[in-house]
Every structure is written in C-alpha cells, then in structure tokens.
Design a protein around this nucleic acid. Structure first.
Lengths: 107, 107
DNA sequence: TGTTTATATGAACAGATATTCATATATTGA
DNA sequence: TCAATATATGAATATCTGTTCATATAAACA
C-alpha cells in the first residue's frame, strides 16, 4: 500500500466535487453543450433552452465562477463561450459512457 | 447551424447530469479514489475515510445503482471495487484540471 | 430625458440530498 | 442457540440548490 498512489488530500476531494458539480444539473449540461456548438448570448440561450432568463443567468454565473465559461460584452448583449478545454472532452466522455451503458453503440 | 452537431436530447441531458452527480460529492470522490487504488470492504472504507459506517453504505448504494462500483460477498464482508473503466479516467481528468487551474503543474 | 431591451442579482421557496440514529439482516464462532 | 461482527436500510433532520419573482443596472434609441 505504501508504494501505491497516495490517497487524495481533503482539499483536492472538495475541489474535485466542486468541479464536477458543474455537470450535475441538466440545465447546466444544456448550456455547456449549446456553447460547445457555438458561442451564444443570454437571450439566445433562453430561446434554445426555452427557460426563464433569470434561471439561465443564475446558472451562467455558477459556470463563470468555475471558469468554465467566459463572456464579452457587445453593447447590451453578453456573448458567452466555453473557457475550458476539458469541458467538451468531459461531456463527450459522459455521452460515450451513457451510450455504451444503454447499449446503443451506433448512431 | 443545421450542418453542426445537433443539440442533445432532453433524456441525454438528464442521464448525463445523473452520471456526473456521482462525482459531485467529496465522500463519493474519496470512495471512488480509494477503490481506484485497490478493492476494499466497507469497514476498510470506514477506517480510510474516518466516517460513519451508515454514511459509507448509503453512498455505496448510490454508486452501485449507477453501476460505478460492484461488490462480492466474502463471508460477512462485502468487497467493493470499481465497475467502470471511465471512472479512473474521469477522476484523473478532474485532478489534472484542478492542478492546471491552480497552477501547480509539477509534483 | 424617457423608454425599451438585455442582463444580473437578491430574496423566498420548494425540492433534493448527505448524514445520523436506530434497527434489521446475515454470517461466524463459542 | 446466543453473542459478536459486518453490512444494509428506513426515517428524521439539516443543509444545499435550482427556479421564480421582483427589481436593479446599463446600453440603445426615440
């Protein structure tokens, strides 16, 4: 046991959990995947997800605080985009996992 | 937009969120990482994580129901191990992400 | 300046969830 | 059979979290 990888530090465990929390909600998944397809402003996300503007803004704040998305102001609109290379990879790993588990390799 | 990847289905978004929920809690991260190092029975996990046996068992049930861990009975003990190839990869991606973000590439 | 549009945000509320406590089940050994 | 050990699980509780509502801010434009 002593010659193996050491256990994770308490701090790392909490940081990891916080990181993965970004992906544990369907709304945030939708936002992240939408931004993976292309950058979008808030009102476009509101239409795409057919949800309350406030709900979208609140979730964008969560994702911003984790540095998963960034945005730039263009006049009165805020254009959001992904700010982390790992996001797309993680989403695709998850998708592959689900497809594999549910047994529909193809499509 | 029409020639790009289509948006994810509602069901896929919820399945993805449910999958990532397994990693959104520090206790489950600890359990998963401990089992990544080696298989362990419940009482070993209780000692390793220094937590209530009931709490561990409840979390093991969550992970079992998502097919992330499996177990075999050996007498009165239940030996748990990882049951999904993606788990270790995901954890390592998360760890790399944190290290990268916090700026300590090395070590 | 006043109005409209886009976005952000605090407060409140409802629903989800992690832990604890008590207890059940089942295996081992005396 | 009785006691001890290992694990599982239902109920209760406290905390966390996502959404909504109301409202604030700020840019654009008449």
């Amino acid at each position: 046991m002593s010659d193996k990888k050491p256990m994770l530090s308490e701090e790392m465990c909490y940081d990891l959990a916080d990181f993965f929390k970004n992906f544990d909600d369907a709304t945030r998944i939708k936002i992240l995947y939408a931004l993976f397809r292309r950058e979008m402003c808030v009102s476009e996300l509101v239409k795409e997800l057919d949800m309350n503007q406030s709900a979208i803004s609140h979730q964008l704040r969560v994702l911003r605080q984790s540095d998963l998305v960034k945005f730039r102001k263009e006049g009165q609109t805020a254009v959001y985009s992904l700010d982390d290379d790992h996001v797309a990879t993680l989403l695709e790993m998850g998708i592959e996992h689900i497809r594999h588990k549910n047994g529909y390799e193809e499509e």
